[in-house]
């Protein structure tokens, strides 16, 4: 019985070791600006000034974003480049909040919402009280 248990553990470990490397692509390495290749520098050029001051984890993330850049549409590429600088200036909490909101907005089925840019413009044109009314509160407001 003990032999069987040991064999099961060894098999599970072997499977894990075999399965892990292909499932997760090798993580990018942290690099200083001068160590980036020409293509990465070209994509990440808006961050050149602050690159070496960024957190190592952030730099690794941006190298990962640069890897996905060629697959984006030209419009998407332009957006990424113009938004980079603003994104790195946000606090980690703000970035977390933005990602959370991105997930929530992405979950709204496209057929139930209009064009997102038009929706955003419409929302911005609402009076401030109206906009604040929709902001999530600590306790959910229920109809009395």
């Amino acid at each position: 019985m003990a032999e069987a248990a040991r064999l099961a553990i060894a098999l599970a470990a072997a499977l894990l070791l075999l399965a892990a490397p292909p499932a997760a692509a090798a993580p990018e390495k942290d690099r200083r600006w001068s160590e980036l290749n020409a293509e990465q520098q070209e994509i990440l050029v808006p961050l050149e000034g602050e690159w070496d001051r960024l957190e190592p984890a952030q730099r690794v993330k941006w190298i990962g974003v640069a890897k996905r850049y060629p697959k984006m549409t030209p419009v998407g590429q332009k957006r990424v480049q113009t938004r980079m600088k603003k994104w790195v200036k946000l606090t980690p909490e703000q970035r977390k909040q933005a990602r959370e909101n991105y997930r929530r907005i992405s979950k709204v089925p496209p057929e139930k919402r209009g064009d997102l840019q038009r929706d955003w413009a419409e929302y911005q044109s609402l009076p401030p009280q109206e906009r604040q009314r929709t902001a999530p509160k600590k306790k959910p407001v229920t109809a009395q």
């Binding site: 692509a25 993330k61 998407g76 990424v80 994104w87 946000l90 990602r99 991105y102 064009d115 929709t134």
Partner: peptide
């Protein structure tokens, strides 16, 4: 790490500006 990379790449290339995702009420309004 890969998940965050993918998410940031999508978010930054999306139709909406960063401000829309920073707004506390827009997602709920939508």
């Amino acid at each position: 790490v890969a998940e965050v990379e993918e998410l940031d790449a999508q978010l930054l290339s999306s139709d909406l500006p960063i401000d829309a995702y920073l707004d506390q009420g827009f997602a709920a309004w939508l």
